[in-house]
Design a protein around this nucleic acid. Structure first.
Lengths: 399, 399
DNA sequence: CTGAAAGCGCTAACAA
DNA sequence: TTGTTAGCGCTTTCAG
């Protein structure tokens, strides 16, 4: 039976390890060792190999490597909605961290749909990712189990770990939210609403609970009518605010479960011809870059996505098959670029905690009533225009 | 020499094609044919195979498939800055299109740096992507050539094709920009500024040139001081507007090379205590979702990223090795899910043209001067409040 | 229509 | 230290 094709027919443009070996007059094993930075290679031979690599413009075939080594050098990254600017910022960090270590990231968006989650999980499994970072809430435990079953390390965000500790990225919502609530309280707000994320899953509730507990701790009790469920989107924020505006009693401040919601709120307030922060103070969550640019710039709670990404990658890689495998630095065809950067992270890191902090910008201020009081108390003098409520004339109406 | 490990040691949880074959009492070849939907498989055997697949929860190993077939089912997607919301919207479309056809996408952001472009190109090459969509301007021709050399289909955006036609996605900027300029002209604007993208590369100039040519065609000549170079970011837009504001003469309208720039402009105007559209009309470009939510909502030029993504994928896949390869639908372990969806796109599609259109929202209006004229001409009657200019009282100044 | 077997390009035992 | 060689899991001839 004749072989399908003679091995390594010197096909131009499709250089493989054999071609390099031939040109360098060494065995393919030596080539492999060289490009993998195995230290026991004779420098003379190594030099010849690198020369051949450059000359032939050789790039190792990742598929083959993955097949034999069992490690794909692919990290899965599951987010809820890539369209929410928080995630691109996160993805950017992931990309950098991954590429720096010779990995690629595989992105999957769940769009909050169980069906899509399943597809994402399957994709990750099929591509044999070396680890998965689940950066969204409400990812069904069931799918997490599948990763566990395949022995794929995963990390996910959870305020109340129900899982192996080393796979949890704990986010300390409380700090930031409590700073936010106190900030509002100090300004004089007593009527604070909260627009949550999608509440259909267990963990999406945590920011809301953090809010409730902060409220309680400063002696305020929540008005159930002011606890609105949003969905972390612009539209959701706008709709939620419209619901609030439709009620007979209005809060004076609104905390939002994320920045997109807050931007939606700003829009709704603008459409209603009301003003921020005069009529309502609003606070977001995430501190996406855009918040510096909203009108007015949004007061929000910062959660460092750089930290999040770094911690997640660190955690994943430190638990991977790396220990038994090759050096973390890929061959890539970069000659001897300083020493391979191994072991820069700790062995079996437990859960990391990401903290959150309030960033005050310009959507928070004194509540209207306080402003009026300020004006009325000092002894009731004539109030020239009694302006505040609804009195503002907009320049030119353009509809 | 003893083999490293007996083949298929019935390792639980790590099911391979052999396991399926054993359970189904057929050869691995039959399993392969079945899951690849080769039509000549005996239905009885096929049924047994699918049953085994389900029972074992078998997922074909993508790496192995890729290695032997030479096709990775990976599509590269190169963008400039994932942090610009236009791209996530684009990526979302790509992800859907890719996954639907059994592909994954590999994302690379160049951040406009040549160095990073090189890394991106290398990553794509190493992972042996089946095609690359270059959705950013200024990607060096040099790297494009490498793809060509490796016989990897690529598409990129270019208004003036300097490359094989079938790899160009032509975007018709002129339509949208001309609609924008005319819209402004009709409103009475004669002094129109343009904030471009980064001009350091050939093709980034095209939107600007489109603008210039539109200006010319309605008999206006550009003021060089009002042609500012931005960089397609929020910060860049703000800075550019500040430069404009520092000049002795102000334009009455500003067109921006993308939406982020326009949002930066809105911010700068806000900071300067001026108003849009009263003091300046502004028009963006891209029509990202966010533009509906800016304050006020941004008039912009829509370029359908859904179209862009669809066209790019279509183009890439139709040119790929698919023709000689297997059916486009992956095995994935989906039994007989209706007929495999083959040949839904045309064979060797030439360049596609994406059109652009003006979306009028609320950042464009009459220029100040026109407003004043309106008021003064009709016969100078008492003007009760002379409201427009700066007259609007802002609720409370919050600095 | 089915099964046996030859590799895809590479890594990792093992032998030398 | 270096070379030889056996597969990684799969697709695809080719012979039955």
């Amino acid at each position: 039976m004749k072989p399908r094709r003679k091995r390594s027919q010197a096909t131009p443009g499709k250089m493989d390890i054999r071609g390099v070996a031939a040109l360098a007059r060494v065995s393919i094993a030596t080539v492999s060792r060289t490009i993998n930075h195995v230290p026991t290679v004779d420098p003379t031979l190594a030099a010849r190999v690198w020369k051949a690599v450059q000359e032939l413009n050789y790039l190792p075939n990742t598929q083959a490597r993955a097949l034999v080594s069992g490690r794909s050098r692919l990290i899965g990254l599951i987010v809820s909605e890539i369209t929410n600017p928080f995630f691109p910022e996160l993805i950017q960090e992931f990309e950098q961290a991954a590429v720096a270590r010779g990995y690629e990231i595989l992105i999957g968006s769940t769009n909050y749909e169980t069906q899509t989650m399943e597809v994402c999980a399957r994709r990750m499994l099929e591509r044999k990712v070396d680890g998965v970072a689940v950066m969204t809430f409400g990812f069904e435990d069931f799918f997490l189990d599948r990763f566990a079953a395949e022995n794929i390390p995963y990390v996910f965000i959870d305020p109340a770990p129900s899982r192996p500790l080393n796979s949890v990225l704990a986010v300390n919502y409380l700090t930031g939210i409590s700073e936010g609530v106190q900030h509002l309280a100090v300004l004089g707000h007593r009527n604070i609403a909260f627009i949550s994320g999608p509440l259909n899953r267990r963990s999406a509730i945590s920011r809301k609970e953090a809010f409730l507990s902060c409220l309680h701790s400063i002696g305020l009790k929540p008005n159930p009518d002011w606890l609105i469920e949003g969905d972390h989107t612009l539209d959701g924020g706008r709709d939620a605010m419209q619901k609030l505006l439709a009620q007979p009693n209005w809060p004076t401040a609104i905390m939002c479960s994320n920045d997109m919601t807050a931007i939606g709120v700003q829009h709704a307030v603008f459409e209603a011809d009301l003003r921020i922060p005069d009529d309502f103070s609003v606070i977001g969550f995430d501190d996406i870059h855009l918040t510096e640019y909203t009108i007015p710039p949004l007061t929000t709670i910062r959660m460092s996505c750089r930290d999040l990404a770094a911690r997640a990658m660190e955690n994943l890689l430190s638990r991977g098959k790396t220990i038994a495998g090759t050096a973390p630095s890929a061959a890539s065809a970069a000659p001897p670029p300083a020493a391979p950067n191994k072991s820069t992270f700790r062995p079996n890191q437990p859960s990391a905690t990401i903290t959150t902090h309030l960033i005050v910008r310009r959507t928070t201020g004194l509540p209207r009533k306080a402003l009026q009081d300020l004006r009325q108390d000092p002894s009731s003098q004539t109030q020239p225009q009694q302006p505040p409520r609804n009195s503002r004339q907009r320049g030119s109406v353009q509809e």
